[in-house]
């Protein structure tokens, strides 16, 4: 969980990629295309999209805790402005925003 060498740092704004690919993808569809921020870098982990299909999971991918405002994710959400949603997302699903 240490030595995060990924390209994003806490506070960076990111947009979740809108790729739609088959397989053992761990990026929920409800955050694809949404803008959030990197809350924390968790380190490098084996890639589940490879592991889930008998692969070796290499190369490892950096995993981030990404925060979103509930209003950004759902449009309509009450009470507006306060509540947040956090999702664990691998680096290859994130673009700078």
């Amino acid at each position: 969980m240490s030595g995060a060498a990924g390209k994003f740092r806490p506070g960076d704004r990111v947009r979740v990629r809108t790729d739609d690919r088959p397989g053992h993808v761990r990026t929920p569809s409800y955050v694809r295309g949404k803008i959030g921020w990197v809350e924390r870098a968790y380190g490098d982990f084996l890639n589940p999209e490879s592991l889930g299909h008998g692969g070796d999971g290499l190369p490892k991918k950096t995993l981030y805790l990404v925060g979103f405002h509930q209003g950004e994710v759902w449009g309509e959400y009450k009470p507006w402005g306060r509540d947040r949603l956090f999702v664990d997302i691998y680096e290859h699903w994130l673009d700078p925003a």
């Binding site: 947040r84 949603l85 997302i89 691998y90």
Partner: peptide
């Protein structure tokens, strides 16, 4: 209460 913030964690990966 509305004044209390809710933070949802979706555990999608290794954590």
């Amino acid at each position: 209460p509305d004044a209390v913030e809710i933070r949802v964690h979706d555990s999608t990966a290794d954590m």
